[in-house]
Simulated assay, not measured.
Amino acid sequence: MPVFADVDTGVDDAMALVYLLASPDADLVGIASTAGNVGVQQVCVNNLGLLELCRAGSIPVSKGSEHPLSAPLRTAEDTHGPEGLGYARLPATDRQLTEHDAAQAWVSAARAHPGELIGLATGPLTNLALAMRVEPGLPRLLRRLVIMGGAFDYRGNTTPVSEWNISVDPESAAEVFGGWTAAWGTDAPEHLPIVLGLNLTEHIAMTPQLLGRLAEAAGSPTAPMSELDERGTRSAAVNPLIRVLEDAMRFYFEFHFDTDDGYLAHLHDPLAAAVALDPELVQYRQTTVDVELAGTLTRGMTVADWRGHWGLPPNALIGVRVDPAVFFDRFIDRVGPFAHSLGPT
């Protein structure tokens, strides 16, 4: 299945891309770099370096907007590290960005695979909103769209009510949801975008034990992680991909530990990648979603009209239930052997 990924690579975005590269049922046809977890230039560096690490073929990577549609850019180095991948270091590469920008990359990929392309957005929706300005019919060209973003009947992780990706660029999210309704109207409810919010993704908690299972599946000896370890301890894994993932995840573990979540990490974006390939991993509720843009305390809040007060057609399928064990089994079963295929260094 052709997949186009729009990412702000970060730790969990990187793991989402690895999942796609490790999946035999996915053909990653393009990557859009969006500003979010770190600035867009660093996101581009991370995406190109990750493809080099994974010995991927010639997958085009396009640079997106350097800032949200109308708000100043905020980044999250405290969560993902100064370069977005925690303590990890990616290999140098001579891979180059495309000459066209990320918005055009969205449109070109959709036109090249009409009715077949799976869109995956795990960062702010800036590039997708710009792409829909170029091609308002973009929603009708996609087979499906999976968005990691929002929080539905659930606390935010950026403000009390807003999730990070939506909070960084709420205007773009509002445009995407509105543009979807404009493109489809009341037609084809099976083409509604799948939206995975914090209410779902925070159930996907990576732990040192699960990371150990991944290393074992890759045939890569390593040292177990613990909150008692010295901060910044580097991975002992012999496998290059496992080493990068462990160094990235350690920073992510430490961040979550410091915010009283425990020595674990929420894998928001890998779940979205898995759902992009297999929507049946998650149960959904259909509704109409909009984004608060003006509220003094609620800007960036995703509002779901569960009872139909607005009288508008539905524009989203909201993920409401997932089995974390099923997801992690699938993640390890795919990424472990893929890492093993890269061999030790």
Results as ranks from 00 to 15, higher is better:
Leu125Arg: 09
Arg111Cys: 01
Pro2Tyr: 03
Ala183His: 13
Leu138Val: 07
Asn37Lys: 00
Gly156Gln: 03
His256Met: 11
Ser58Lys: 14
Pro136Gln: 07
Gly81Pro: 05
Leu51Thr: 05
His67Asn: 01
Gly149His: 02
Gly86Tyr: 09
Glu246Leu: 10
Val146Thr: 15
Val168Gly: 03
Phe327Ser: 06
Pro324Asp: 07
Val134Ala: 07
Asp94Phe: 03
Ala71Arg: 15
Leu271Ile: 12
Gly115Pro: 10
Asp261Ser: 05
Ala14Asp: 03
Leu21Met: 14
Arg144Val: 14
His67Met: 02
Glu246Pro: 08
Tyr154Ile: 01
Ala109Val: 00
Pro314Ala: 15
Pro279His: 13
Pro139Met: 01
Leu281Ser: 04
Ala183Ile: 11
Arg144Pro: 13
Ala131Tyr: 01
Trp164Asp: 01
Asp290Glu: 09
Met225Arg: 15
Phe327Gln: 08
Trp184Asn: 00
Ser162Tyr: 05
Val275Phe: 01
Asp101Val: 04
Trp106Lys: 03
Arg299Pro: 00
Leu142Gln: 04
Ala129Trp: 11
Arg55Met: 02
Tyr284Thr: 13
Leu297Arg: 14
Asn46Met: 02
Ser33Asn: 12
Asp8Ile: 06
Met225Glu: 12
Asn46Tyr: 04
Phe331Gln: 07
Arg143Asp: 09
Glu171Gly: 03
Glu77Leu: 08
Glu246Arg: 14
Leu241Met: 08
Ala173Met: 02
Thr201Ala: 15
Ala173Tyr: 02
Val40Arg: 08
Ser172Gly: 05
Thr288Gln: 07
Ala92Glu: 15
Leu50Tyr: 06
Ala236Cys: 01
Glu254Gly: 11
Ala274Cys: 13
Gly295Leu: 13
Asp13Gly: 06
Leu145Thr: 13
Gly123Trp: 13
Leu97Cys: 12
Thr207Pro: 02
Arg285Glu: 13
Pro114Thr: 11
Thr186Ile: 00
Pro324Gly: 08
Val326Gln: 05
Ala88Leu: 05
Gly311Pro: 00
Ser108Thr: 15
Val7Gln: 04
Asp187Lys: 07
